[in-house]
């Protein structure tokens, strides 16, 4: 099977607020996909639907052939924008904790990534800088051997050096023969060279879903300029 994510006419309401309105798309396996749109456009809701954290009000979400429920986290690694690190642990303890809860956690890969990201095993999490926290979160997400990796704003609020190390880490450690990465981001320009496809959302609606190469070839535009033509 070559599809990893399928949204069929998906709508989502939170009480009276419409977060997503009749969204349909299909994401093939082995791609890096950028999910872009302004704040409140529905990006995070889309990621939460994929990770089984919320359910659609209408329509259907299918992840790797199944409808996500609580067990979907065996197939999906989700790096949320919120902080998931425990301050009372040291770096290595946090990694061990993850390897304890997820059977698919690859401790060797985590070890390699900690080194690549220059993270000190024995440093207490409460003493990590924001950039170090961002890198540790990426280590935790990418060390899981799951078919789908969701990254919610992995670069936001980080300085350029840290953003670059996160991008390099991502390129070095993703396994696109077995994994698909979907990430939301504001830093479109910076991640554009990483993306195979772009999904643009606005006000809960799907604005466009396109191959990055197609945008460049047919429209002679970067993603940023291409998006401007819609707004």
């Amino acid at each position: 099977m070559s599809t990893i994510v399928e949204f069929k006419h998906v709508s989502k309401r939170y009480r009276m607020t419409k977060a997503l309105d009749d969204i349909t798309f299909t994401i093939p396996k082995g791609k890096v996909v950028g999910l872009i749109g302004s704040n409140g456009s529905g990006k995070s809701t889309i990621l939460k639907l994929m990770s089984g954290l919320v359910r659609p009000t209408k329509g259907k979400v299918v992840i790797n052939g199944i409808v996500p429920d609580r067990l979907i986290n065996r197939q999906v690694a989700y790096l949320s924008e919120a902080d998931v690190l425990y301050d009372f642990y040291k770096v290595k303890e946090m990694v061990d904790f993850f390897s304890g809860i997820y059977a698919d956690f690859d401790s060797e890969k985590a070890e390699e990534m900690l080194e690549f990201m220059k993270l000190d095993h024995n440093k207490p999490i409460k003493h990590l800088s924001k950039g170090q926290r961002g890198r540790l979160k990426l280590v935790l997400a990418l060390s899981r051997q799951v078919p789908l990796i969701l990254l919610d704003e992995p670069l936001s609020g980080l300085d350029p050096m840290v953003r670059e190390s996160i991008i390099k880490g991502l390129i070095s450690f993703i396994d696109l023969e077995k994994q698909t990465v979907i990430m939301t981001t504001h830093e479109v320009e910076e991640v554009e060279p990483l993306l195979d496809q772009v999904i643009a959302v606005m006000d809960g609606k799907l604005l466009a879903f396109e191959d990055v190469d197609t945008i460049r070839r047919k429209e002679n535009k970067s993603i940023v300029d291409w998006l401007k033509s819609y707004t």
Partner: peptide, 10 residues
């Protein structure tokens, strides 16, 4: 990093 490439070609 993103600026190393022209925007108008794949």
């Amino acid at each position: 990093m993103g600026n190393d490439y022209e925007s108008s070609r794949p």
